[in-house]
Design a protein around this nucleic acid. Sequence first.
DNA 1: GACACAAATGTTATGATATTACACATCCTT
DNA 2: AAGGATGTGTAATATCATAACATTTGTGTC
Lengths: 131, 131
Amino acid sequence: MSADLTRNQALVMKTLSGAEAPLSAYTILDRLRGDGLRAPLQVYRALEKLTELGLVHRLESLNAFVACAHPNCHEQELIAFAICEDCGKVEEFSDDVVKDRLDGWTRSHGFRPAKTTIEIRGNCGGCAGKA
Amino acid sequence: MSADLTRNQALVMKTLSGAEAPLSAYTILDRLRGDGLRAPLQVYRALEKLTELGLVHRLESLNAFVACAHPNCHEQELIAFAICEDCGKVEEFSDDVVKDRLDGWTRSHGFRPAKTTIEIRGNCGGCAGKA
DNA sequence: GACACAAATGTTATGATATTACACATCCTT
DNA sequence: AAGGATGTGTAATATCATAACATTTGTGTC
Ligand SMILES: [Zn+2]
Ligand SMILES: [Zn+2]
Ligand SMILES: [Zn+2]
Ligand SMILES: [Zn+2]
């Protein structure tokens, strides 16, 4: 189960869970120096494992990481992210129609998909109003 | 028009157009040292302009750049990329249904989208067969 | 417990990607 | 010619990520 994380994994997970916005690996490292972490690799290794477990997602367009918003987000399904460039808030959603359309394209083109990234950058409702 | 590129912009554009796979900014720089380019910024500035013009796309999941496959790819439309992790080939396509679904989500959530990234990593038909 | 194996850790160094700051040149409009 | 917008050259620095190696910890088997 996801309960038996190692010390470093748990530290990184706690940091991401408590964050209001995506964090870079180095930001995580800085927040964990007080807990004894010293090298980027300690964070990257934990992130790799947490991502495998589906507890953390990497945002490619940000080079940053975010805790999964769902209780048990299965890796299988296609996840889309809406990322606010002002406040950093990330919303995570999935859409079967989008998944079907992309699956249709890959199937008809003989493309074998491994991982799909959908990231919408912009402004969330709160921040768009303020503009 | 797109014809009056500056020297550096034209050099970068030519390099990307002739490439078989996406190139990183530093790879472009290395290929253009013979033409007098010396600093990363010369490449990044050209890439920024070319991206604005819609002649080049940035692949977020690769931190790399690719020449637009379409004659006149308007920035407006939503573009998806299928990227082969073996041979590097990139196919560019768009899908109105996907666009509508994502637009629907953002509209209903008050999210104002600025830029959307869709990247499918995997293996192209040619490479998937060889596996 | 002793052993063997897999997984995780600690540490140093290095590689790869991207931007800031500043001085100068070029082009275009008035 | 003056002014502004855009592009250029250069050095320095910031940010993101991995390689290599030695060591430790957890886990299952005997
Ligand atoms: Zn999730
Ligand atoms: Zn916001
Ligand atoms: Zn295009
Ligand atoms: Zn291929």
